[in-house]
Computed example of a mutant assay.
Amino acid sequence: MHPEPDVAPPVSADAELADLARRVREGVGRLNWRMRAERDPSGPGPAVLAVLSRLYRAGTHTPTELAEAERLQPQSLTRILAWATERELVTRTPDPEDGRRSLISITPAGLAVLRDYSARRERWLATALEATLSPTERQLLKLASDLLVRVADA
């Protein structure tokens, strides 16, 4: 028996496409990490922000639905919801169809926290774009961002 080589299979038979995939992944990943660093360190953490964002985008959820959608363990979600409920960022109401379940919704205060987080990141990004890119490069990035959304929605 020969040990398997420690090499990942090729991403694509097309080397240029594989290089593009790697570059996009790296760029998007680094930008995501950098933008996350713009959050208020005394504010909610990434998991709370993800839950608030899910509730804003997709509406009211049961705790089970939230845990599955955000790929969280139920115990982790319980802590997140307790923290967010204590700060009145979410509400928990009985499910009218099944009294054993509860429904979680974002509150106006939760929406304000989410909007502040988004605005803080977008301010940083706008400043970085202005300082780093030429007007032509910004136009190219605008086109590329539309393409990234199309790829994400595929």
Rank of each mutant, 00 (worst) to 15 (best):
L143C: 14
D153H: 15
V28Q: 14
L66F: 02
E38W: 03
R22S: 13
R123K: 11
R57C: 11
P3Q: 06
L125D: 01
E26R: 13
A58W: 09
R123N: 05
D6W: 15
A131T: 03
Y117H: 04
S102D: 06
S118V: 07
L81Y: 07
A13C: 08
L77D: 01
A58K: 14
V7H: 15
D14L: 10
P10F: 08
A119T: 00
I80C: 06
P5R: 09
L72H: 04
A67V: 00
G29C: 09
P63N: 06
P74W: 06
L52H: 07
V28G: 11
R121Q: 00
R120M: 02
S12I: 08
T107Y: 03
L66R: 02
A18T: 00
P5H: 11
P44K: 15
A67T: 00
P96R: 13
L49F: 03
R87P: 01
P41G: 00
A82N: 13
G110M: 12
D40I: 01
E97V: 13
S145I: 03
H2D: 14
R71Q: 06
L49V: 04
L111I: 14
A13K: 14
P135G: 00
S42E: 05
L17S: 08
L129T: 01
Y56A: 15
D14V: 06
D98E: 08
T107A: 10
I104N: 06
E137C: 14
E26L: 11
S12V: 09
D146K: 15
A154D: 15
A37Y: 08
A13T: 05
G43Y: 04
A37V: 03
L114D: 02
Q75G: 05
V51E: 03
L72I: 05
S118C: 10
D19P: 05
D98K: 09
T60E: 06
S134N: 02
G59K: 14
L31H: 14
Y56R: 15
R92G: 12
D6T: 15
R138L: 00
S12N: 07
P46Y: 12
L81H: 03
P135I: 00
H2A: 13
I104D: 04
T93M: 13
E97I: 13
V24A: 12
T78L: 12
R23G: 05
R23P: 04
L148E: 02
N32W: 14
P94S: 10
D153V: 12
A112Y: 08
T78Q: 12
A154I: 12
P74V: 02
A82H: 14
W33Q: 11
P135Q: 01
S102A: 15
P46Q: 13
A37Q: 10
L114A: 01
R121G: 04
A13Y: 09
I104W: 10
R92F: 06
A13I: 10
D146G: 14
L72V: 05
L114I: 01
R121Y: 02
L147T: 07
L133M: 02
T62K: 12
E70H: 11
G43V: 02
A15Y: 07
A152H: 07
T64V: 13
R120P: 01
R87H: 12
L89Q: 07
D6L: 15
S134W: 04
M35R: 15
R138P: 00
R71A: 07
P10I: 04
R123G: 01
V24D: 00
L125H: 04
R92Y: 05
R121T: 02
S134C: 00
H2L: 14
R101D: 05
R92C: 08
R39D: 02
E38K: 09
D19Y: 10
T78H: 08
